[in-house]
């Protein structure tokens, strides 16, 4: 909450914390303090939805990363492992560059459909090849490469310079121009998905020693994995379709959270969600103002800010161990 408020004050137009409080309370119908219309618009129509979407993205991507790392026994798993981001980019490119069905779906809709198509194909391939965790990962790598190539091919063959730049910017992740309905969608998806994952936190713990141990602890391994993979895919596809593929958060923040609260998912998942939300709000705020008036793609910002932060944690952790 404090981070969201703090981040809103950053930006080319000056907005104070008092302004934010007044705008919020006015909208909740609790007060009727006069606020200048420009500031009102900046806070309510622009910065607040943007900060909340950033928080949802950070929370959701972190959550998905933590879940996938447990399910696939792989510390390098991230939300984009299963072809979701490259499928989304293919979908967006098909809409944005080729103009197929653009009026109905829009860039976001195309990305969402592309992400789910890619995820479905990856799961199908993984299932056909035996269904073990290594097969899921290999199928994901293959799917990711294939859809990335499709995207590049479509851009190379059909796009002009402007379209290319637009798609590239979107691919790197951007929270430009998010609206309240985006906030609502992201928020609901992340909350529902997060609650679901949290209910399964003991099952995620059971995966620590592999499928056989999980099975002997009474976890229906294949069903649990399939359902949770589906939940993470839906969350990720939603977030990607709204904000593009924001890297780093889903891969590294779960590790940061693990350093802080340990590996038990009942604590790890909420911690990852919280760290992810706060982290993204600040990275997005910094990305907005760092190179004014040109915004930095937030996906670039996450890695630029996040890697040094992660290195610090690693070094501190080494001294403790």
């Amino acid at each position: 909450m404090a981070s969201v408020a703090g981040a809103i004050t950053l930006g080319p137009a000056e907005v104070s914390l008092v302004n934010i409080r007044d705008v919020l309370l006015n909208h909740l119908g609790l007060t009727d303090v006069p606020v200048r219309a420009v500031k009102e618009a900046i806070v309510w129509e622009e910065r607040l939805p943007r900060a909340l979407t950033a928080a949802a993205c950070g929370a959701g991507l972190g959550l998905c990363g933590a879940v996938l790392q447990a399910l696939l026994h792989n510390p390098l798993a991230d939300p984009f492992l299963l072809g979701i981001s490259s499928g989304a980019s293919t979908g967006a490119v098909v809409i944005g560059v080729l103009g197929l069905g653009g009026s109905v779906l829009g860039l976001s809709g195309g990305a969402f459909v592309g992400a789910l198509v890619a995820f479905g194909l990856v799961l199908l391939l993984a299932g056909l090849s035996g269904g073990g965790t290594d097969r899921v990962i290999l199928a994901g790598v293959a799917g990711t490469q294939f859809f990335a190539a499709l995207t590049s091919f479509a851009i190379f063959a059909f796009a002009d310079a402007d379209e290319t730049r637009g798609v590239m910017f979107w691919l790197l992740g951007s929270l430009e121009g998010v609206r309240w309905d985006d906030v609502l969608l992201c928020g609901v998806v992340v909350l529902v998905g997060g609650a679901w994952a949290l209910r399964q936190s003991h099952a995620l713990d059971a995966f620590a020693f592999g499928d056989d141990v999980a099975d002997s602890l009474g976890i229906p391994v294949r069903r649990t994995r399939l359902v949770l993979l589906g939940v993470t895919a839906l969350i990720t596809a939603t977030l990607v379709s709204i904000a593009g593929s924001i890297g780093f958060v889903g891969l590294v923040l779960p590790h940061a959270a693990r350093f802080l609260v340990g590996p038990r998912h009942a604590r790890l998942l909420p911690a990852t969600v919280l760290i992810g939300a706060v982290f993204m709000v600040w990275v997005d705020a910094v990305s907005r103002v760092a190179f004014q008036p040109t915004p930095l793609p937030v996906g670039v910002g996450t890695a630029l800010v996040g890697v040094p932060a992660f290195v610090l944690i690693l070094l501190r952790r080494r001294r403790v161990a």
Partner: peptide
Amino acid sequence: THTDVDIRVRDVVRLGRIP
């Protein structure tokens, strides 16, 4: 049966309570 997770012995034993 090995793990990459940084887990303490007590938490390993506690897994047995899951069922």
